[in-house]
Design a protein around this nucleic acid. Sequence first.
DNA 1: GACAGTTGTTGACGCGGCGTCAATAATTGG
DNA 2: CCAATTATTGACGCCGCGTCAACAACTGTC
Lengths: 242, 242
Amino acid sequence: MQLLSRKQREIQQRESQILSLARPILVSEGYQSLSMDRLATQMEYAKGTLYNHFPNKEEIVAALAIESLEMRREMFERASVLVQGSRLRMTAIGCACDVYASQCAEHFAVEQMLRNMVIWEKSSAKRQKIIQQCELRCMGVVAGVVRDAIAAGELKLPAKLSAEEFVFGFWSLTFGSHILMATSPSLPDVGVQDPVRSIRFHGWTMMNGYGWNPSVSFEETEAVMEELAPKILQAESEECEL
Amino acid sequence: MQLLSRKQREIQQRESQILSLARPILVSEGYQSLSMDRLATQMEYAKGTLYNHFPNKEEIVAALAIESLEMRREMFERASVLVQGSRLRMTAIGCACDVYASQCAEHFAVEQMLRNMVIWEKSSAKRQKIIQQCELRCMGVVAGVVRDAIAAGELKLPAKLSAEEFVFGFWSLTFGSHILMATSPSLPDVGVQDPVRSIRFHGWTMMNGYGWNPSVSFEETEAVMEELAPKILQAESEECEL
DNA sequence: GACAGTTGTTGACGCGGCGTCAATAATTGG
DNA sequence: CCAATTATTGACGCCGCGTCAACAACTGTC
């Protein structure tokens, strides 16, 4: 019994060892450079042993993506309770997105890889379910803030727009901008000098467009974001480098 | 001289033959399924001949992406002159984005593939330049509308926000939403019933937030988009299926 | 503490895809 | 008609994924 559980623990922890070895390779050298043979060599285990843990390479990426999505959700939750007032809470979540995409770029990158259908399709139904639940819970956090805003009379949703559809707009805006920043070789060359500030401004304007109260000046919004950014990152600081 | 030019023409047209054979495979079966051997077999040429045209597989994808970007730009240009008034012209371009992403999904998909650094990095400097110019020209079309709006006094840009940075917001919003629609397995499950309409509404609201005149009701905006969509597609109709 | 049964580990192997290159064929100019 | 140039070919080397039969370690039993 003692030995069995020791062995089992050994196996358990090997799983996370695989993941923590795979992540830096995946992020710094890309999906192509992550080879099972290389991983096995570095682990000092045979390749077959890796396949006891993950049925294929894609599953490793999916597992990493789940870790990343989990982290994003934690940052959302932390951000959403750092300040008072629905509009500022929403702003804080927007800030969390920025922090996540820039300070935890390796996690953001792994999330994106999963959006390649090749990887998604080859990953197990079990992990697909988990990933969808992660997404759902992220959405839930933000939609919760929106519902609070409505309940407090600080925001009135247009007819035919659900809270989730409302969130979808902000999601698209920040998400799209981060993808573009990460993959568009040279935004400055097309005239976008400060993309992050621009998107913050657009988000702020969109909130104005919806009449989200109490209204805040953009300068104040920026100040709040500057102040919150380190707090959002804090608890993750040890597991999130670069 | 006759024969030489016939031969040369033959070679020229083989290039587009390769591309038009590669595109459907790439789109319907994914990047992994596009193999050089398979392509060669279907072309009824030897593999080596393919490599006379494209130094590697990635370059084929890059070449396809250029075709797609070119088409997007044409649609933007066509959309931007279909209506009068800067706000409606901007709306028309937004509509062009929707049409492009939904009706020319295969082109949109190829564009996205290029955003995988693996493919981007392996493509030649020459093609990278062309791609950046395509992006620049797309941006140019939209920024032109914005500048017209400013000149006509229908829009006033906030200080510290360039026309391009202004465009970047709408770009992120529509682009982000289309990526999410294409890759997020089940938006309806997280509560987003009608993503396209939602984003149109968000874009409309953002324009309101910036005080873009003359203001238009959302219903009218939708009506204009419905009317324009087929016209934007028209000239491409033969080269864009599904 | 020997033994049968179970569970975990190994790495050589098959397969398929990319890109190369020496041999071969076609084309050109003289 | 004959070099010289240019285009075409497909077998080959290499690498990476995933498998599986052989082997090792561990477990519970008598």
